[in-house]
Simulated scan of single mutants.
Amino acid sequence: MNYKKYPKINYIGNKEKIAAWICDQLPEDVNTVADVFSGGCSFSFEAKKRGYRVIANDILLINHQLALALIENNHDILTDEDVNTIFSGSLKSGFMTEHYANVFFFEDECKQLDYIHENISELVNPYKKALAFSLMRRAMIRKMPYSRFTIPWEKIKQLRDEEYSYAKYGRRRAYHNETFESHFRQNLAAYNQAVFDNGKTHQAFNEDVFDLLKHIQADAVYLDPPYTGTMNNYFGFYGLLDSYISSAIQQPFNNHFMDKKQVVELFERLIGCLKPFKYWLLSYNNVSHPNREELAAMLAQDGHSVKILETPHVYKVTGKENKQNHKEILFLVENHHANL
């Protein structure tokens, strides 16, 4: 089972490189783990590979699709017939054309997105549909300079000009101008092979973390919230993908952990919601707010045992001068009063 490979996701803040290290810290009596800010699902995927029962949750619709496709889904993959159906038909003016033509993609590309969305929506199997949207996420990200949807249109056009890119950066970045279908098909095998059954039943949720924690049961909860004070505008980076999935302009979500003025209160509230769970694992880094000592004190309240581990971790979106100064911090908490 361990040969299964996590596919290319391109998710800012992804823990792919240290997911194994984090999983190594799970206590021996853990059978079910809840990844409540699952993001690109790298930790959930590693936990599933190791035989745990996994509960994955994220408030972004596109991350929920990833969790449905790669975590909850144990069997269903996209066949050649499915893919041919997804890319059959002709250009269509719809939601993306109306709202995002010449905003993030050219008009003809938005018309492609509209007809592809219509075809994906007609898939009956929810896991096939989730895989298709996950592959479209990959395709849309590959065509987007810097892999996030916060770039002005004039800059997008400039960076997608292969001659400009070559003159400026020594790279033509031709993949920005490949079709959605080309990117989809190039990544199809990698996503299909990532679907596997570890003998457990998994769940994927699309909820605010405070609502989720009221109704799930798990031996350990892994928390990887946005790191306050760093580049953590996940709705800005990926909200367009949520709008594409839903064919509705999505609004920024609450409880986003971006505001330094609110984050301590959010952490206190979050810790209060963790009381039913025996183990808590919290990822953070050494330049975020609140700092290491403040978080450790908050987590240790009520007599909880707190162990702090560190590992170097390079954040791709960090400025060059800061890349080597960042360390990933993992707080491992044992709650002696868990009431499960």
Score class of each variant (00 low, 15 high):
6 Y>G: 02
9 I>W: 04
10 N>W: 10
12 I>K: 09
16 E>Q: 13
20 A>H: 03
29 D>W: 02
29 D>R: 01
31 N>Y: 09
36 V>D: 04
38 S>R: 05
46 E>T: 00
50 R>L: 04
51 G>Q: 05
52 Y>H: 02
55 I>A: 05
60 L>S: 12
69 A>C: 08
75 H>P: 07
76 D>F: 07
76 D>K: 12
81 E>V: 13
82 D>P: 03
98 E>S: 07
107 E>W: 03
110 C>P: 03
115 Y>V: 10
120 I>K: 12
124 V>K: 08
125 N>R: 04
127 Y>T: 11
129 K>Q: 13
131 L>Y: 10
137 R>H: 13
140 M>K: 05
145 P>V: 07
150 T>N: 12
154 E>N: 13
160 R>W: 00
161 D>H: 07
163 E>G: 13
165 S>R: 15
166 Y>P: 11
168 K>Q: 14
176 H>V: 02
183 H>C: 12
186 Q>R: 14
188 L>F: 02
188 L>Q: 08
190 A>G: 14
196 F>E: 15
208 D>M: 12
216 I>C: 10
217 Q>N: 15
225 P>F: 10
229 G>Q: 06
229 G>E: 06
232 N>P: 11
235 F>S: 08
236 G>Q: 05
237 F>H: 08
240 L>G: 02
242 D>W: 00
250 Q>N: 05
250 Q>M: 03
250 Q>H: 01
254 N>Y: 09
255 N>C: 03
257 F>T: 01
262 Q>M: 06
263 V>C: 06
277 F>Y: 10
291 N>K: 12
306 V>E: 07
313 H>W: 11
334 E>S: 10
334 E>M: 10
335 N>L: 02
339 N>K: 08
